[in-house]
Design a protein around this nucleic acid. Structure first.
Length: 583
RNA sequence: GCGCUCGUAGCUCAGAUGGAUAGAGUGUUGGCCUCCGAAGCCAAAGGUCGUGGGUUCGAUUCCCGCCGAGCGCGCCA
């Protein structure tokens, strides 16, 4: 419809140019937007305002000229000039009503588009260090990433969802060592647990498994473990202390034995995370191991490529990538003085690999605290000869958890946090998923636990689900009363009141709103849309009776109601929220 | 100090590419179930869009300064 109107205007402008009523080649950028008020028709265009200057006449005069030149077609009922020079289009009711039949015929596919033309997009999200269960801070990225993936798929992209497993870093060694120390305690040793170790209960669980399956195989006397280990905080340096312990674990156990302990911790936690995410309605296609990058030689390869292109130099015994040449604020180390590559080097290799796997576009969903990291990753891609614009980073702001009006703070290290699992069990999957995507991604948000828990009109997710359940209820009652509905052949012309007209219009813009949400990477647009739809429905429901004696009217209304429930279902599904038939 | 993201109703937030009278929810006040689900609807009240300039027919939107908030600025990951 938008396109038709846009074409009509373009045609009119060409006519005016040819008859020299306006200067030629004034370069129209024709915008057509859905009207915001029923009094302003269905669609509006501001061409006359934008072209007034170039045409050398007042906007209203130009608007009148354009309207006079627009050819009549039967899908447009009326065109008029309003306000400072807007052109408002009124769509014929027969045309707009046909959307109901489209919705019913297309069902679950209504709103789908082929915009992406099967282009390959990779979206990487969550990617939390597997050093503990996911907590509520990870939930927002998970919900937004999963919803974005659904949206992109819905508008025609081939989407691959990936979790980057940081299984090679210092944090993982701290975890492995923490598990080992807890294991020693289970063996009967008396261990003073490092202040910087992971203190959560899950560490005990893994240690218990280790002990159960291996008994005293990894046991070493504590005196030996603590020998020559620097002092812990507060008297000493807690970072140095834990690093010494890690080294001790490696030397005392030997590489192979240490690896067994380490891998048990890793595998257990990745499993926990995978299960938690699955229960949260989030499933990844690929779990990409950071360690595999070095195993496959990709890190060396990436550094070599940077070296070959002259973007690496040596200083203070380390190798530096000259990222300042590509817009970063300082150069970055890729290989340390001790010969080890940095986390950044892994990330260069990882992103290189993403594009080498054939993704035309790569989306990373990162916590907002990683924003300073973007320029260097893009710099490395440019230096390697990739188009850095094909890497998109969506920053997700933190969600503050509130309960009883108090902010809840969290720390994985200390073991004090609300897990994603607890949140879901507490407020329910639907409310949890919904709350996370309700707000614009880059907007800081407050997650009110009390509100999410509340099963009342205060909880916005129920508002949408209630609309759906209500429609299902009416349909059930029709069936019970033996009323047969012929919605497919309903005379939709009977839908005449303002509620019905507004609903028909709202249904018709679902495809474009979904597309906008996908292309702008803004899932919250779907939430807003559905809220508007539910609101219009509830108002209509309160103002009019569906199960009326007038069969034709009843069929028409039930057709509209069914279409509404279908769109609610489609929209909620994109967000991973259920559409219950009863509540 | 530099950088990123922000600042809209009492509170939580929408307002893409500049447009018509800045909108929801919640809270407050008052109405609506002899009628399909009241987890709902209707109405009222609530705003110098942080602040001061600039750009133009027009700025919540774009540009600059200032104030305020959160987060970053490692041979950590």
């Amino acid at each position: 419809m938008k396109q038709i109107i846009s074409d009509l205007i373009a045609q009119a402008l060409r006519e005016l140019e040819q008859t020299s009523q306006i200067p030629s080649e004034i370069g129209a950028n024709i915008q057509v937007t859905p009207a915001r008020d029923p009094g302003q028709g269905d669609y509006a265009s501001n061409v006359a305002l934008t072209l007034a200057k170039a045409a050398g006449m007042p906007p209203r005069t130009l608007a009148d000229l354009i309207v006079g030149q627009i050819s009549a077609i039967d899908t447009i009922e009326k065109v008029e000039v309003a306000g400072p020079g807007f052109i408002n289009f009124f769509v014929a009711s027969a045309t707009s009503h046909s959307i109901i039949r489209n919705v019913l015929e297309q069902g679950d596919d209504f709103g789908r588009s082929s915009h992406g033309q099967g282009g390959k997009i990779q979206i990487e999200y969550v990617s939390a260090n597997p050093t503990g269960p996911l907590h509520v801070g990870h939930g927002r990225g998970a919900a937004i990433g999963a919803t974005l993936a659904s949206l992109l798929n819905f508008v025609g992209y081939e989407v691959q969802q990936e979790y980057y497993v940081n299984d090679a870093g210092r944090q993982m060694h701290i975890l492995g060592t923490s598990v080992w120390l807890r294991y020693l305690e289970l063996c009967g040793e008396t261990v003073t647990f490092p202040s910087n170790g992971y203190q959560g209960d899950y560490v005990w669980d893994i240690a218990a498994t280790l002990h159960r399956e291996n008994e005293a195989r990894f046991q070493k006397p504590v005196a030996e473990v603590m020998a020559e280990v620097s002092e812990d905080a507060p008297a000493g340096d807690k970072e140095k202390h834990i690093d010494d312990l890690i080294e001790k674990a490696q030397t005392l156990l030997g590489e192979n034995e240490y690896r067994i302990v380490f891998d048990l911790a890793l595998v257990t936690l990745v499993d926990v995370i995978r299960n938690d995410l699955h229960a949260f309605g989030v499933d990844f296609d690929c779990w990409f191991s950071e360690r595999s990058l070095s195993d496959d030689g990709l890190i060396d390869q990436a550094i070599q490529r940077l070296q070959d292109s002259g973007n690496v130099y040596e200083q203070d015994g380390a190798q530096w990538f000259r990222s300042t040449d590509f817009g970063d604020e300082k150069d970055r180390v890729v290989r340390r003085e001790n010969g080890q590559t940095t986390y950044f080097a892994s990330d260069i290799a990882y992103h290189m690999n993403k594009f080498d796997r054939g993704f035309g576009r790569v989306i990373n969903i990162w916590g907002a605290d990683h924003h300073g990291y973007i320029p260097r990753v893009k710099a490395s891609l440019t230096a390697l000869g990739y188009d850095a614009d094909n890497l998109e980073v969506e920053l997700v702001q933190f969600a503050n958890l509130f309960e009883n009006g108090n902010k809840i703070s969290m720390s994985t290290r200390s073991g004090e946090f609300v897990t994603l699992r607890q949140l879901r069990e507490d407020v329910g999957l639907d409310a949890a998923r919904f709350f996370y995507v309700m707000r614009k991604t880059e907007q800081h948000m407050d997650f009110d636990l009390d509100l999410a828990r509340e099963q009342s009109n205060d909880n916005p997710v129920y508002y949408l689900q209630y609309a759906h359940a209500r429609i299902c209820s009416v349909r059930r009652q029709c069936a019970e009363k033996g009323i047969s509905l012929v919605t497919g052949e309903a005379n939709l012309e009977r839908l005449e009141n303002t509620h019905e007209q507004a609903l028909v219009k709202q249904l018709s813009i679902f495809p474009e709103r979904v597309e906008a949400a996908a292309l702008r990477r803004e899932p919250h647009l779907v939430v807003n849309y559905l809220r508007e739809l539910a609101n219009l429905f509830h108002s209509w429901y309160n103002a009019h009776q569906f199960m009326v004696d007038d069969v034709e009217l009843r069929d028409a209304r039930m057709a509209l109601a069914s279409a509404i429930s279908q769109v609610l279902r489609n929209g909620l599904k994109l967000m991973g929220v259920s559409a219950p038939e009863t509540m």
